[in-house]
Design a binder for these strands. Structure first.
Lengths: 328, 328
DNA sequence: TTGAAAGCGGTACCAG
DNA sequence: CTGGTACCGCTTTCAA
């Protein structure tokens, strides 16, 4: 038994298929006829085929979300919030998980024009010329999230200000020899902007001895980096680009029998739940990922509706914790 | 400038649109003609509209994945693995995130018939009569994942055997007074099957004094539950239904100045990366979520191809860790 | 108010 | 090999 079509329903209700279509799309249908159609639909569990609908109709009510991963807690939260908000507007998100594969990310961009989505949101870490070119060929509302973009509309976290806050805090606690453990600058937001903010905050607070250490987003590698660093360092504070790195620092420091914050002060970025379960509580930044996702969804809807929008920055919350020692 | 259609391309190449269609679908096209078409497509960046394609063609190459959340690390891993595998077969997953909302989960099931997917995978925690009824109306390959289902095909983790292994291990380490901290039985796999396995293992190992404590999947609530339990308990081992609960146990026990495994033995389930970073290393079960996702995708493809399949159980790895004390 | 008919952008059969 | 033509399931004039 193949699925019924609008034609079948029309036949069963003894009306034309255009009338059934009108029934669904809010056109003129006599109350009497309406009832008959409703009854048949009810009995047959009929609902119109979305593919066919969006072929002819100009609306598909679908929005693409391209994300580098869903395995990251923060990404998942942002995506979930976008999802939620888009649905509340009657739109269905189509999630593309590129699994950190740049080629696939580019491919997704290409295939956007093949699927009937009304707009697309890219959770970008890196925006290359290829991205910009493909997006420019796209001819649909497009939004970059989590990354400042030199071109186009974007929603980003205020990494600079957050970094500044952390840097300033540590500086004002009296630290003068500080190490920052960051990630590759290819990730503009986390790798560059965040670091620049931290450095500016440290500098304004009077810190001049700043060491930079390159790590990545993994716990394992971070431990290695920190283990080496601890062997000979004059730093009293380690500012970490993410909470995961901070957690690696905690464990390395504990392993060599030192204490936080007595021997070393630590800060993170992220405000994951895990920070709350660290002892002592980590001094970190909590970004409002839900707000970011929600704002992105709302902006996308507005773009689809043809309204003018402008890029936005999402705020953050400073979590003082107890991992920074005041050494005055 | 609206998107070009196959008709435009045909006109530009000076051929009929059926020829262009054949060009894409591997039919007869003279080399000469082929070149001309290729050139036009290249110049115009043309690619066929997927919506239109799947309307007429019987294949849409899309598979729905309905998941209660993507914010859970394990779910995300399974989904990512499915995604990866489906794509490698040329299928595109359409992810539905129901956000733990049962009504939405049911709605998703309903809407499956409206979108042109060739099959659907449900990451289920609870399978109600409503689910079964809706699925039975579906008329497309359907697969339950992460949950044994009384009906239909499913892929599930071997929670029973894993539980048995944990129970048996603790029993054989000489513990005689044991507390199991589980979750609601509505979650059949984790709440019931896992517990049953643990109990069976304990019993076969000679344990008769078993206390059950109900918690949930959250770290916070688990701490509360464990805090109360520690006030008066004769148990020497706390078997936790998840690693998160085990982590809560670690922290509560450390907070009252006791030691693991000297004072209390702890076990978990999950094998998240977080277990590796716990001190002492947690005795736990590592389920192979990637394998689960991959197997699900493969099975779905086979179902779509009309092959006969049967439900599968995914194995696990026992991580001994060092959180269970041998008290012989 | 209603239904016939013309598409939407493709695919596939069939005659040439 | 190629192009004409009939659809896929639904929306949208438009005339009745």
């Amino acid at each position: 038994m193949s699925r019924l079509t609008i034609k079948d329903i029309a036949a069963l209700a003894g009306v034309g298929k255009s009338t059934v279509s009108r029934y669904f799309n809010g056109g003129y249908v006599k109350e009497d006829t309406r009832q008959r159609i409703a009854k048949v639909i009810e009995e047959q569990h009929y609902s119109p085929n979305v593919t066919a609908q969006s072929l002819k109709a100009k609306h598909s009510y679908q929005v693409a979300i391209i994300t580098p991963t869903i395995e990251s807690y923060t990404t998942a939260r942002v995506v979930t919030a976008m999802d939620e908000q888009l649905r509340s507007f009657g739109y269905t998100p189509v999630i593309y998980n590129t699994n950190h594969n740049e080629e696939r990310e580019l491919m997704s961009l290409v295939s956007l024009s093949r699927i009937n989505v009304e707009g697309a949101i890219l959770m970008a870490t890196e925006i290359t010329q290829d991205h910009i070119k493909l997006v420019s060929q796209l001819d649909m509302p497009f939004l970059y999230v989590a990354q400042e973009s030199p071109v186009g509309t974007h929603i980003s976290l205020d990494d600079y200000l957050a970094g500044y806050k952390i840097g300033r805090t540590v500086a004002e606690a009296g630290h003068r020899h500080v190490t920052y453990i960051g990630v590759d600058e290819k990730d503009i937001a986390v790798g560059r902007t965040r670091k620049n903010g931290v450095y500016a905050g440290l500098k304004d607070g009077g810190v001049t001895d700043m060491t930079f250490l390159l790590s990545d987003f993994t716990y394992e590698h971070s431990r290695t980096v920190i283990r080496e660093a601890l062997k000979q360092t004059s730093s009293t504070a380690f500012l970490c680009a993410t909470d995961t790195i901070a957690m690696a620092a905690y464990h390395e420091i504990q392993d060599i029998g030192k204490k936080i914050p007595e021997d070393y002060s630590i800060t993170g970025f992220g405000g994951y739940d895990s920070s709350a379960i660290m002892t002592p509580p980590l001094c970190t930044i909590r970004f409002n990922y839900e707000e970011e996702g929600t704002a992105a969804a709302e902006m996308m809807i507005e773009m689809i509706q043809g309204k003018a929008v402008q890029s936005e920055k999402i705020g953050f919350e400073f979590i003082p914790g107890n991992s920074v020692r005041d050494i005055h």
